[in-house]
Design a protein around this nucleic acid. Sequence first.
DNA 1: AATAAGTTGAGAGCTATTCTCAATAAGGAA
DNA 2: TTCCTTATTGAGAATAGCTCTCAACTTATT
Lengths: 150, 150
Amino acid sequence: MAYTPAALKAELNERGWRLTPQREIILETFQNLAKGEHLSAEDLRDVLKDEGEQVSLSTIYRNLKLMARMGILRELELAEGQKRYEINQPSPHHHHHLICVRCSKTIEFKNDSVLKAGARTAKKSGYHLLDCQLTIHAVCPTCQRSLLPV
Amino acid sequence: MAYTPAALKAELNERGWRLTPQREIILETFQNLAKGEHLSAEDLRDVLKDEGEQVSLSTIYRNLKLMARMGILRELELAEGQKRYEINQPSPHHHHHLICVRCSKTIEFKNDSVLKAGARTAKKSGYHLLDCQLTIHAVCPTCQRSLLPV
DNA sequence: AATAAGTTGAGAGCTATTCTCAATAAGGAA
DNA sequence: TTCCTTATTGAGAATAGCTCTCAACTTATT
């Protein structure tokens, strides 16, 4: 089922890049994440530290970006101010996000026809698809009732 | 057709806020933007300066955020490192973005069924819809051919 | 016209992210 | 295996987009 370290190595080497312990650990960490969880760079650093794996923030930032550009991770902006990452999974697990712009409460939802429409659009323009994100910005029921401004 | 200054004033006052010349100018500027154009905070500052309207960056940042949260503007992340804004238009003009993660070349496309699916999803969860963005991250044909890494 | 409260501008401050570079290690070649 | 080239890492400095602070000013209301 899962994308293996060997597959990661093959894909890296194909482009002249290398498999390092750090990259392997990062991939594994995201694969073991509970459904619906996503990590910021600092989150990942802390998770790794808890597991006794020290990886520098520089390396984490570099590899999150790299793996997103390879299509292995998805780069999400669920709340203001920091990017979060999660494994980029194919169709039955692929999902989108509904986000409250005030409190950042996020709901995941699936919609295969949107994914298909995205893939079709990319193909039509000759683009190689990496990730397809339907992001809905809205105000959640609680914040609609709140008296706080904005 | 367009959202008028009076409508902006009404909507602001309703929430206890005020219509200022700066807010009116910002709205007008986005309404006069060519189709497919979007501005970063600094872009907007420069455009306004060229028109002889000096508005501080603080004010610009504040109002871009405010108007996005009101649903008047859409906040886009088309390239790394900075947010861009455009008018949030309804159905016949509403569109999505296909972005090359390497060179940031962006193609706009329309898909009403995606917009409808987004609206339906928000409603189902009781969220008040502000904006619905299908963002496709991909590699454009030119960058696929390029020998540059990543 | 007076008043209360929201807004602006200038610059300081913040912080997520990127950059720099010496030390290290991966992968291919011999 | 060993060597060699070159990608990668780690630590900290640097960058930059954005937010915060606060006095001065405006807006909307009475």
